[in-house]
Amino acid sequence: MSEKESKAKEMHQVELIIGQILRIGVIVSATVIVLGIILMLIQGSGGYPNGIQPTGFKEILSGVLALRPFAVIMLGLFLLILTPTLRVAVSIYAFAVEKDHLYVWITTAVLIILIIASVIGYFGG
C-alpha cells in the first residue's frame, strides 16, 4: 500500500469518526432534552421558582443531579452546542494528517473563536 493510499484510508477513518461524533452528539443531546421534558411533564414544573433558572455549569450539574427538569434540558442544549465544537477540534487533526497547514491554522482559529465566544457567553460579557 502506497503512502497516498494509506493517507486516504486514514482520512476516510477520520471522516467516519467526525460523522459519528455529530450523530452521537445529536442523539445524546436530543435524548437528554426529551428526558428533561418528560420530567417536566411528570413533576408539573421546571423545578425552579418563576424567573430563576440555572445559568452556570455548576448550577446546571447540581440541578441535573437533583432531577430538576429545566437543568436537564439545559444540559441537553449544552451538549448540542458542544457537538460541533468537538467536530472542529477533530477536523484540526484531520487537516494535520493531510499536512494541510493552511486549514490547520484556519480551523484552529475557528476553534479559538468558538471557545472565546463560549467563555464570553458564559460570563455574560
Rank of each mutant, 00 (worst) to 15 (best):
I38H: 06
T108Q: 04
G36N: 11
L114P: 04
F78Q: 07
G44H: 08
I92A: 10
I33Q: 01
M1R: 12
G124C: 03
L65S: 15
I18C: 10
M74G: 08
K4A: 15
F57E: 10
G36K: 01
G51C: 07
K99Q: 14
V34E: 10
I112Y: 09
L41I: 11
G124Q: 00
K99W: 10
I73N: 02
I81E: 09
T85C: 08
M40H: 14
M40K: 06
V104K: 01
A71G: 07
V72Q: 01
S45Q: 02
V72N: 04
T55N: 04
A109K: 00
T83D: 05
M74C: 06
T55A: 09
K9P: 10
L86M: 07
A8R: 03
E3Y: 10
V97F: 09
Y103V: 03
S91M: 12
Q43W: 13
Q13T: 07
Y93M: 13
I17V: 14
V104F: 07
I73R: 05
V64L: 03
I81H: 03
I116P: 07
Q20I: 11
S29M: 04
P84N: 01
G56V: 03
A117E: 10
L86S: 09
A109V: 05
F123D: 05
S91I: 09
G51T: 03
P84H: 04
L82H: 13
G25W: 01
P54T: 01
T85W: 09
P69R: 05
Q53K: 01
T108A: 07
G46P: 02
G76L: 08
A71Y: 02
Y93R: 09
Y103S: 03
E15Q: 02
A109G: 10
H12A: 08
Q13P: 00
E15Y: 09
M40I: 00
K58S: 14
I38G: 08
Q20N: 13
I92N: 12
E59I: 07
A94I: 06
E98K: 12
I52N: 00
G25K: 00
A96R: 04
E98M: 13
G125E: 07
I21R: 03
S45T: 05
V110P: 03
T107H: 03
L16Q: 01
A96V: 05
P84M: 05
T108L: 02
G47Y: 00
L41W: 13
M40F: 13
I113K: 06
S6V: 11
L65H: 12
K4D: 15
M40T: 05
L41E: 15
K9T: 11
W105P: 06
I73H: 01
I112M: 12
L77M: 10
Q53R: 00
R87G: 15
E98L: 11
P49T: 00
K58T: 14
G47N: 00
I52G: 01
E98H: 13
G36C: 02
F123L: 04
L80C: 11
E10F: 12
L39M: 14
L79I: 15
F70D: 13
V26K: 09
V97S: 07
G19N: 06
K9I: 10
I112L: 12
M1A: 14
Y103H: 04
K58Y: 13
E5A: 13
I37P: 07
D100E: 05
G36R: 00
L22N: 07
L102H: 02
H12T: 05
T85D: 09
